[in-house]
């Protein structure tokens, strides 16, 4: 079972910025234990562009699709046998990243 694991930061109360070494070490463990599928940190939401081509013409707009205090700062994809395993890893991830984590299963 694959889970999308989102790292959520808060613009008004951001997590600490010195987490990269800890995250790298955690990633290595995820790979060694066979949970790691994909990981990536994201650029600031200001760098996002939304495209809507449902109508006659594609419309581009600057910025994220929704403006909010909380935003997606990075994602993982994990392969885990069940939610309990994913939640245990996510509990560690939240400490490692100093940020909230959302765990959501793929269909």
């Amino acid at each position: 079972m694959q889970y999308l694991v989102s790292v959520i930061d808060d613009k008004s109360n951001p997590g600490s910025t010195d987490r990269q070494p800890a995250i790298s070490a955690f990633n290595e463990r995820l790979i060694a234990d066979g949970y790691w599928v994909f990981a990536g940190g994201l650029a600031d939401t200001d760098a996002a562009t939304v495209i809507d081509n449902r109508g006659e013409q594609a419309v581009l707009s600057d910025g994220p699709f929704v403006e909010s205090k909380e935003y997606l700062a990075g994602v993982w994809v994990w392969e885990a046998p069940d939610l309990d395993v994913a939640l245990k890893l996510a509990t560690e991830a939240s400490k490692v990243c100093d940020r909230k984590i959302e765990v959501r299963p793929f269909q």
């Binding site: 046998p81 069940d82 939610l83 309990d84 765990v103 299963p105 269909q107």
Partner: peptide, 10 residues
């Protein structure tokens, strides 16, 4: 079902 909450003893 969707998140695969396991059916087992903790």
């Amino acid at each position: 079902k969707a998140a695969r909450i396991p059916y087992r003893m903790p």
